[in-house]
Design a protein around this nucleic acid. Structure first.
Lengths: 196, 196
DNA sequence: CTCCCAATGTAGGCACTGATAACAATGTAG
DNA sequence: CTACATTGTTATCAGTGCCTACATTGGGAG
């Protein structure tokens, strides 16, 4: 019988994928470093070599989430048509779709951000995401499809809407079969509100 | 030296107020039943007589929060003027104001709602709040200040906006001095979007 | 090639948590 | 006055995150 090698090989990655799985299944509250170690077949203290604290692991997970979301949105932007409405709808949909597919992850991503000790890379990731949305708005303004005004101010309702819509979906306030029509309604309302 | 009486008097209420205080100061994660008991000057197992589990205490806190928020919104509605825009702005502002003043509480209120075992009274409280907003919309429709359509559908962007705006504020994405102008911007955008 | 050392894993223990069971004090209904 | 339900207390359990000391490994310097 071949014994398990002393060194795991890539414990860090193994922990992360396993953690995301249990996060998806049972939520962040149920995530335990010890149990994670148990499931990965490693000693209880082993994870500490890769993640100084439980929070550090959660941060790493959140960071990964931001990366995935950002690339998804960039791809959606490239894939969308020329018209502002198209791009707008495209970005909104991919955001919401990511949110529904990765509910717990997104919750984690935003839960972590308004606490004091948020790491720099996390904050940077979030800003990158925000910039994406802002550039969409300035583009719309240049085409005359969005009313004028400072971007930071105009962007607030958009952010709020995205954030709020996903919150509604995650919280179960919106049934899955209502999501599509709610999205339509919301996008239409935003476009009317943003019209010059 | 007078010894502390065996019976506390109103432990349940004492625990709740103390719990809300620490919730406000240190967030829900740091809330510990044992510490609560310690601060209240009572044995570690005493709280279990009033709250079967930690979750039960959090639920009670959330329920209290919903009650307070609902009454605040009802009062705001009564205080507001006749015009739809007035009422709309009034409700939005009180909601956001409650959110900023009771950040952690509100987070708790919504965190609990999308988990399986949410108690009935909590769910009922949330529906009461939702009905309030919906009735605002139907009233607006009757006055011809809001486009027609099913209320449940029209209400979604409003809920999303409220939820999202508070999320932005709580998360620190909006600086306190930006809140007022963001609110103005958002309310105006919503009114344009809702216009017939 | 060898030896040393940094990286990675293990063993054990500490302080803390929430939960539960068995027991004690209290106040009250009959 | 007494039986009893309520509300505290004590003790204990399993589980957690984190820390220190030790073991094993593999790769780079000589």
């Amino acid at each position: 019988m071949k014994t398990r090698p002393y060194h795991h090989g890539d414990l860090r990655a193994a922990l992360l994928t396993r953690a995301e799985q249990t996060l998806r299944e049972k939520g962040p509250a149920e995530l335990s470093l010890r149990e994670l170690a148990r499931e990965t077949g490693v000693s209880p203290a082993a994870p500490s070599r890769h993640f100084r604290s439980k929070q550090a692991l959660l941060d790493a997970l959140a960071l990964e989430g931001f990366d995935r979301l950002t690339t998804a949105m960039v791809e959606a932007h490239d894939r969308a048509g020329e018209s502002f409405a198209d791009q707008f709808a495209g970005l909104t949909r991919t955001y919401v779709s990511f949110a529904t597919a990765n509910a717990a992850l997104l919750e984690l991503m935003y839960a972590r951000k308004h606490e004091a000790g948020a790491p720099d890379d996390l904050i940077a990731s979030m800003h990158r995401l925000a910039d994406l949305a802002m550039s969409l708005i300035t583009a719309g303004q240049q085409r005359g499809e969005i009313r004028e005004g400072p971007v930071e101010r105009l962007a607030v309702p958009l952010f709020a809407m995205l954030q709020g819509l996903t919150a509604l979906i995650l919280s179960g306030a919106l049934q899955p079969d209502q999501v599509e029509e709610s999205l339509d309604e919301t996008i239409a309302l935003l476009l009317r509100g943003y019209a010059p």
